[in-house]
């Protein structure tokens, strides 16, 4: 564990990313105390520029506090990102493990099914799903999970294919362990590193997808989110730039930090690769 930390910290970008990410999470957690009351309530004069009337980031066309919107929006964005990633991981690991471990016909069926999802443009499919199931937080999470599991399935399948023929897995077969015990006890723990790295990047893309959906007006109408903030500021961007810019920066920083953390994790979990990249053998 100590070695893991040291390797992670060797990548400076990853440490910066982790700090930003922790700040975003802290903001989300502390939102009800930082900005008590509903972010939908009018807090001041409409179109107040940043700094005026005690609003650091200004107000929108209905006089709502943009800073409060961002803080409360962080809760929704992070929640959607995390939950949809977990759902996508469950689907992806389940299917990928089945395909990779069983091989043969099962592999063919699962992979054709996966490819079917990959051939549909994911954003269009997400819009379609949300539109059909009416926009609620549940349907948004479901839609994002449905469009983002195929890469997980492919990575897990590839790892399983190579690990399945390793001798320690064969040894477990010879010991007579059950298939489930082999999959979860022997193969999966050794396939975790790429899955962990991939999932940090998936959280980032889920946040982007959710923002894009909200921007198009397909967000949950009862929940404040970053995409909604940008969407509502779009039509008045020339007179109230702050309405779109600050939520945009929030999305940018969060996604960037997740990508940096993902890279740091990848370095820390494959220390040999990371060290070679620095040119020290």
């Amino acid at each position: 564990m100590g070695g893991f930390w040291r390797n992670f910290c060797r990548n400076r970008g990853a440490v910066v990313g982790l700090v930003i990410l922790l700040l975003v999470i802290a903001t989300a957690v502390a939102a009800p105390w930082l900005f008590p009351g509903s972010p939908w309530d009018m807090a001041g004069m409409p179109f107040a520029p940043p700094g005026e009337m005690g609003m650091w980031l200004g107000t929108d066309s209905l006089g709502r506090d943009v800073a409060a919107g961002i803080a409360h929006g962080a809760r929704v964005s992070l929640l959607v990102g995390a939950v949809s990633t977990v759902v996508a991981l469950v689907i992806g690991i389940g299917l990928g493990a089945t395909a990779g471990y069983l091989g043969g016909v099962a592999d063919d069926i699962v992979m054709r099914f996966t490819e079917f999802f990959q051939t549909i443009p994911s954003f269009v499919l997400a819009i379609l799903l949300v539109a059909i199931f009416t926009p609620t937080i549940g349907s948004i999470v479901f839609a994002i999970a449905v469009v983002s599991w195929p890469p997980v399935a492919r990575v897990v399948r590839a790892e399983f294919l190579s690990l399945r023929s390793r001798e320690f897995v064969q040894a477990s077969e010879v010991l007579g362990k059950s298939r489930l015990a082999i999959v979860f006890g022997d193969i999966l723990p050794n396939a975790l590193s790429p899955i962990v790295v991939l999932s940090s990047l998936m959280v980032a893309s889920a946040i982007l997808l959710e923002s894009a959906l909200s921007f198009l007006g397909l967000g949950d109408p009862n929940l404040m989110s970053w995409g909604f903030l940008i969407g509502s500021g779009r039509s008045v961007i020339r007179i109230a730039w702050w309405m779109s810019v600050f939520p945009g920066i929030a999305i940018f920083l969060t996604v960037l930090s997740l990508n940096l953390v993902g890279e740091g994790l990848s370095d820390a979990l494959n220390p040999r690769l990371a060290r070679n990249r620095e040119g020290k053998a």
Partner: peptide, 27 residues
């Protein structure tokens, strides 16, 4: 039972030696 060729590949790197030896009988 079987003994394998590659001593570096035939033991699960994430499992303690004691667990590796006992898991067969426990199963």
């Amino acid at each position: 039972q079987m003994v394998f060729q590659d001593p570096y590949a035939s033991l699960n790197p994430r499992r303690k030696v004691g667990d590796a030896i006992t898991e067969g009988p426990i199963t």
